[in-house]
Simulated scan of single mutants.
Amino acid sequence: MRKLKILVSGAGIAGPAVAYWLSRYGCEVTVVEKAPGSRPGGQAVDFKGAAQLEVLARMGVLEEVRRRQTGGSDQVIVDGAGRRLAVMPAEFTGGEVEILRGDLAALLHERTAGDCAYVFGDSIAALEEAADGVRVAFERGAPGVFDLVVGADGIHSTVRGLAFGPEERYVRHLGYYYALARLDVDGAGEMYNEPGRMVSLGGPEAASFFVFASGPLAYDRFDVDEQRRVLADAYRGGGWRIPEVLREIAAVDDVYVDAISRTELGRYARGRVVLLGDAAYGNTLGGFGSGLALLGAYTLAGELAAAGGDHRAAFAGYEEVMRPYAKAAMKGNAGPFLAPPTRARIALRNQVFKRRLLLRGMLKLTDAFATRGELRDYPQ
């Protein structure tokens, strides 16, 4: 394959993963990331099934991921008085291996920093396709020309907005929001529901997790004060320990609120620009995002190698492989399950965890998707 100069937007999981494979195939890779560095912490991400674990193994990081894994824990569902109602087992929400998103991002950055150029604290401002490639303007840095641009910058992708059009055309709000906040509270592993809202305590060592029903909200995702306000409005008047939790939220800066949404795209590529991970086939809290990102990174780079650098053929092959995975992953909406809209629906959901046959059936469905398909072998 001829040496391609490729720009990757996003240094989360998908970006460094595709950078790893592209550099192995001899490409000159630059990764640009808006944040000042690799972002620490975040929620746990998990992997299951032979294909996902095999990608980690072929990248040479599987054992290190196992070493850093968090080890999922059961969630004890309680009522307003703190009485135990049911238990959501760890295997329901986790995979065969689980790791904090920030830890995995840092690990992938470590494995690629020697072969790829990372530019933190900057973002793509404009894209213009020309005969010699894609001309890219940056918010801070000098402009450049690249053979290809990969948008691996999440469900709110800047690259998708510039190359495909406004976010509202492609991202569908699913009627719920989720939030993460690192709070100094006890009771780790306790989960409480009221109609349309859920709180799961993480304790001082892990982020507490929130899900609540809401139509689209206007707020700045990068403004902590506004995110605190959104949570306070959503949980005002709540029972159990919610008043205590809201007081804690008012005193911390580690708060993140975002919509549960789905990316719906007819094509993953336009010209010399291609989308990867959540930017192309995201389904927030769908349970397969990180695994899909790794599979997509492996496939995109492999198809480019197999096509000898012909991006048209490679992008078509990438879409052919990934579309069935993405289609199955986008069917769910975790919001109504985690925060059912009525007390009757909450009670019905809890029954799933009390009846082993129902629970096993749900686990089989998720496992069937995660273990489907085999990895294509690409040139080494």
Rank of each mutant, 00 (worst) to 15 (best):
G10L: 13
G10A: 06
A11S: 08
G12S: 15
G15I: 03
G26I: 08
T30C: 05
V32K: 04
K34W: 06
G37N: 13
G41M: 05
G41P: 02
G42K: 08
G42I: 11
Q43E: 08
K48S: 15
L53H: 11
L53W: 05
V55L: 10
A57D: 14
L62E: 10
L62Y: 11
R68P: 09
Q69I: 02
I77S: 01
A86C: 09
A86R: 09
M88Y: 06
E91Y: 14
F92C: 02
F92A: 11
G94V: 02
G95N: 11
E96W: 11
L100N: 15
R101E: 06
G102Q: 05
L104W: 05
A113T: 11
E129G: 12
A130V: 15
G133K: 10
V134Y: 07
V136C: 09
V136S: 03
V136M: 09
F138W: 09
E139V: 13
V149T: 07
D153P: 05
T158H: 00
V159T: 12
V159H: 12
G161L: 06
A163E: 14
A163F: 13
F164D: 08
R172I: 12
Y178A: 12
A179R: 06
A179Y: 06
G187F: 03
G187Q: 00
N193H: 04
N193M: 06
N193Y: 01
R197A: 04
M198N: 00
M198Q: 02
V199Q: 08
F209I: 04
P216T: 05
P216Q: 03
A218R: 12
F222V: 12
V224D: 00
D225V: 07
R236A: 14
G237C: 12
G237P: 02
R241T: 10
P243R: 13
L246M: 13
A250S: 14
A251K: 08
A251G: 11
Y256K: 12
D258W: 11
A259H: 12
S261L: 04
R262F: 00
R262M: 10
L265M: 09
G266V: 11
G266K: 15
R270C: 07
L275M: 04
L275W: 00
D278T: 01
D278L: 02
A279W: 01
A280Y: 11
Y281S: 08
G282V: 07
T284H: 06
F288T: 10
G289F: 04
L292R: 02
L294S: 07
G296K: 01
T299E: 10
A301K: 03
E303P: 00
L304W: 01
A305Q: 04
G308R: 14
A314T: 11
F315M: 12
A316V: 14
G317I: 10
Y318M: 12
Y318H: 09
E319V: 12
E319K: 09
E319T: 07
R323P: 04
K327I: 01
M330H: 15
P336K: 03
P336F: 12
P336I: 10
F337M: 10
P341A: 14
A344W: 07
R345K: 14
A347Q: 01
R349L: 12
F353G: 00
F353C: 01
K354L: 14
K354F: 02
M362I: 02
K364I: 00
L365K: 14
T371H: 03
G373I: 06
L375N: 05
Y378E: 03
Q380F: 06
